Computed example of a mutant assay.
Amino acid sequence: MGKLLYSAAMSLDGFIAGPGGDMGWLAPYTGGSEGEDLAAEVGALLVGRRTFSGDDPYRGTDGEGKAFGGGWDGPQVVLTRQSFPAVPGVTFCSSLAEGVAAARAAAGEKTVNVLGASVGRACADAGLLDEVAVVVMPVLLGGGVRLFERPGLPVRLELLAQEGTSLRYRVLR
């Protein structure tokens, strides 16, 4: 079974989305190689509803509407209590346990990439998260959605790798 990895691009002041979930701030920083290595290890995505149906940092480009701007294609599991029309390659689940199980089954031995602040925090709170990867972008947003939006139990981390402003941590249990 593959690991559960929460990943995000983050402003230097700790925000992964701007006010109202705006992802436009990330557009000047897309297209780099930061996501390519990560995309190669991902077998499935586990995302929240806001991430799934929210703003797209690749808006107006060939990568619009595609994971990693088109650098990855595969199964997605969306955690939501809302109903959505069927989407090819997307499974909708109403509980964290159901969503994690579905994403792990879809990913096989590969990594489940967790996207979205609420889902990342829920996985951490449930003790399910194995790793956290963050790319710190050279911008101060001043507000928006934080990497971990609300305080919870402390989550101890051990640095696994650092390349420039890309940081990868193991979650210690």
Rank of each mutant, 00 (worst) to 15 (best):
G32I: 00
G70V: 14
A105R: 10
V132K: 02
P88C: 09
P138G: 10
R121V: 11
R104L: 13
D130A: 09
L129K: 05
V100R: 01
K3H: 13
V78S: 11
L159N: 03
E163D: 14
G142K: 05
K66W: 01
L147M: 09
G65Y: 14
A124K: 13
G14K: 06
G14P: 09
G89T: 15
K66D: 00
L26W: 06
V155T: 07
G60N: 13
E64S: 13
A126S: 14
V77C: 12
R104S: 08
A133P: 14
G63F: 10
A101V: 08
A17Q: 09
A101Y: 11
G74L: 03
A106T: 06
Y58D: 07
A40N: 11
A107T: 11
V114T: 01
E158H: 15
T80G: 11
R59P: 09
A86S: 15
P154K: 13
D62K: 11
D62T: 11
R104I: 10
Y169K: 02
A161P: 03
E64P: 15
A44L: 09
G152I: 10
V134W: 02
L147G: 02
G63N: 09
R146F: 14
G65T: 15
S11H: 03
G63C: 11
A106N: 05
L172W: 08
A105C: 01
R168W: 00
D56I: 14
T80P: 14
G120I: 04
A107G: 09
V135G: 01
D22H: 07
T61F: 03
V145P: 01
V155F: 01
V47Y: 06
R168Y: 00
R49T: 10
G143H: 12
G108T: 11
L38E: 05
L172H: 03
S118E: 15
G24L: 08
K3D: 07
A117D: 03
G142F: 08
P85K: 05
Q76F: 07
P57I: 04
V136M: 03
T51P: 03
T111P: 03
G108K: 13
V114C: 02
T30S: 04
L159R: 06
R81C: 09
A39Y: 04
F84L: 07
E34V: 05
A161W: 02
V77Q: 07
S83I: 15
G108W: 12
M23T: 10
G143F: 13
V114Q: 00
R168V: 00
A124E: 06
T30E: 06
E36I: 05
D55H: 11
R49N: 14
A102Q: 08
E158R: 15
A105P: 01
P57L: 10
E98S: 06
F68E: 01
Q82V: 12
Q76E: 10
A103Y: 02
T80L: 12
